[in-house]
């Protein structure tokens, strides 16, 4: 479990990093290293070049604005988790981050790194889907924005080109009259979840759901939106029967095959339970916020 030989560079700017990436096809970006270093030590990855972006000043810092939270690429997960400004703007983030691995991992791991890694069981891609966030991307040809719904293509695969990098993750602030919840079931505290559900629901003055956004991790080849379940909720008062119908619809979003931790049938059961519980919590929080 020692890594193979590789070259290592530490660019000082995004442009340098992108140029290094373009010059060596067999290169990878090193941010927090919490997934990459393990794959190197297992020799699952064998890149010729590691581009360490941790010294790029432009990739540091969080901006909490009136409409969105901008988390630049080298911001550690722990920093976001502990930020009161972020929490004030969108409390879903802290709730999700507290389930991401362990503190020591979050001290190093980055938000953008986890999203770029695109593990199907990871929490942050699901969070990005539910919040309808975007990523800012830079490549040799310039910059572009990729919406969450266009980003995740397969387990460990995104729509970024080989020579592009994420420079920031942008997440909308929590909308008014909106409640949130994230719940997952992992075998051990901090493990990748067997299933996890993010729920955001917005209620009108009559307590009717005007918008629901549900996403899941651990149940398919990528993090997924549970659109069929969202459709069951929209326009309803989120009574128990409606929630149960949505949860049943959510079950059918499970496409992961049986694995050694969970059968498909059990994952469907988990998704059902977690959907019911997250939607109920999100609804109650929305009601509280509306009352406040």
């Amino acid at each position: 479990m020692k890594p193979p030989l590789f070259d290592y560079v530490t660019p000082e700017s995004v442009e340098e990093a992108v140029a290094a990436r373009a010059a060596e096809e067999d290169s990878v970006l090193l941010a927090g290293g919490q997934s990459l270093l393990a794959t190197l030590n297992f020799r699952i990855a064998n890149p010729a070049l590691l581009i360490d972006i941790s010294r790029i000043a432009a990739l540091k810092g969080i901006d909490v604005g009136a409409g969105e939270i901008i988390i630049r690429a080298m911001v550690r997960q722990r920093e976001v988790e502990l930020s009161d400004a972020v929490h004030g703007a969108n409390p879903l983030l802290r709730e999700v981050l507290q389930k991401v691995a362990h503190t020591v991992v979050r001290n190093r791991g980055t938000i953008a790194g986890s999203i770029a890694h695109a593990d199907a069981a990871a929490e942050l891609p699901a969070m990005l889907l539910a919040t309808e966030g975007v990523v800012d991307v830079q490549g040799p040809g310039g910059t572009r924005v990729i919406e969450a719904s266009d980003l995740f293509k397969f387990h460990l695969t995104t729509s970024l080109a080989g020579d592009e990098m994420i420079t920031a993750v942008r997440i909308p602030n929590l909308a008014p009259n909106t409640g949130w919840s994230f719940k997952e079931f992992a075998r051990r505290r901090g493990d990748y979840a067997l299933a996890g559900i993010c729920a955001l629901v917005t209620l009108d003055d009559n307590g009717r759901c005007t918008k629901a956004r549900l996403s899941a991790c651990g149940i398919a080849s990528t993090a997924v939106r549970l659109e069929s379940a969202e459709a069951e909720l929209a326009g309803s008062t989120l009574d128990e029967n409606t929630i149960a119908r949505a949860a049943k619809a959510a079950r059918d979003c499970v496409t992961a095959a049986d694995d050694s931790q969970a059968s498909t049938a059990y994952r469907r059961h988990l998704v059902d339970t977690l959907t019911q519980r997250t939607v109920a919590v999100a609804r109650d929080r929305a009601l509280e916020r509306r009352a406040a």
Partner: peptide, 13 residues
Amino acid sequence: LTPDMIFQALGGE
């Protein structure tokens, strides 16, 4: 005894 085994013992889906 895993959660999935408990699930199956409860009758499955």
